[in-house]
């Protein structure tokens, strides 16, 4: 892991730049579908990502991680903001440009059971993306599918089988093969292991790790727990209710977390010795509704270190040691 980080190219131009991205879902009511409210799923998220890096995205369920991924892939339109990927503004691209652009940005799904078409043979599932972009004839596509199956640890002959003949881990490997077939630059992994057995999880994570080295991939890695993130990421973004709470390199997040929410997430990692957990830092209760997020700092309702200012003023980002930013009044001024 350490070696890998050292070798990474540090390019000046980031592969992906997201600035003040917002996604609100309207809440409609009545026969005229009047918009009565907004679900603030992603509320002003900005970050950038360099080529070859892995960005970990972590937060409780309902914090907007998956929505963010879907907006980045333009599966759902953004409300406002800007996404610059590889020099192109995705949100303003027309449908033709967008379809070409999709080659470069791929997704690995959370649920390996619903993400593969049950009526399609595995070879077709993997090679089909090539046909959308007129790449190769049918024989070349089949060869490519066979190649990729072997790369992800399955057998060539599996191209003729149907998804239901595979286990969850194997299906996830098929999903990974499909995401690789177009030689993308960026792969968004939306909780790729959370539906799998623990023993299979590490295999898939190692596979993703190896693929990154082999194909110089950039990952955005979404997870709801920090233990998986730790294994994979170079940088980590902690999200809560649609906002970024803290961003730092993976080492810093784990060695010296600043935001009380990050600390709470860290205590949620299962450890061999439960007595070592600092229970002061844990949070209780559920995430508040994103329809009416709490005033001021969104975390103040559950924060163990809440102050008076927290419910009144929303904290801005404080930069600490150059690339460690945190949105918390504890570190303001």
């Amino acid at each position: 892991m350490e070696e890998r980080k050292m070798q990474k190219p540090t390019e000046s131009e980031p592969l992906l730049t997201v600035s003040s991205l917002v996604k609100y879902f309207p809440v409609k009511e009545g026969i005229f579908s009047k918009v009565v409210n907004q679900v603030r799923a992603v509320d002003g998220v900005s970050f950038s990502l360099n080529s070859g890096q892995t960005l970990g995205l972590v937060g409780e369920s309902g914090c907007g991680k998956t929505t963010l991924a879907r907006v980045l892939l333009k599966l759902i339109p953004a409300t406002s903001g800007e996404i610059i990927f590889d020099g192109m503004n995705i949100l303003q691209a027309d449908s033709g440009q967008l379809r070409k652009h999709r080659r470069n940005m791929q997704l690995i799904f959370q649920d390996p059971f619903s993400s593969l078409n049950p009526r399609m043979r595995v070879g077709k599932i993997i090679s089909e993306p090539l046909s959308h972009h007129n790449m190769g004839d049918s024989r070349e596509r089949r060869k490519k599918a066979e190649e990729l199956l072997e790369i992800v640890g399955l057998q060539k002959s599996d191209i003729w089988r149907y998804p239901h003949e595979f286990s969850g881990g194997q299906r996830q490997r098929i999903g990974i093969a499909r995401s690789l077939v177009l030689n993308p630059k960026l792969i968004i992994c939306d909780e790729p292991v959370s539906a799998l057995d623990v023993s299979i999880q590490s295999q898939i994570l190692n596979l993703l790790d190896n693929l990154q080295k082999e194909f110089n991939l950039t990952y955005i890695f979404i997870a709801h727990g920090l233990n998986v993130i730790r294994h994979m990421s170079d940088r980590v973004i902690v999200m809560y209710l649609g906002k970024i709470m803290e961003e730092a390199t993976s080492d810093k997040i784990f060695a010296s977390p600043l935001h009380p929410y990050t600390k709470a997430l860290l205590t949620a990692i299962p450890v061999p010795n439960p007595r070592s957990i600092d229970f002061e830092a844990t949070v209780e209760g559920d995430v508040p509704s994103p329809i009416n997020p709490p005033s001021g700092c969104r975390f103040h309702t559950r924060c163990p270190e809440v102050m008076e200012i927290c419910s009144k003023k929303e904290p801005g980002f404080t930069l600490i040691e150059g690339d460690h930013r945190v949105a918390c009044h504890l570190f303001g001024e």
Partner: peptide
Amino acid sequence: EAAIVVGA
């Protein structure tokens, strides 16, 4: 969704 992502 996967098909949309691969540009179908």
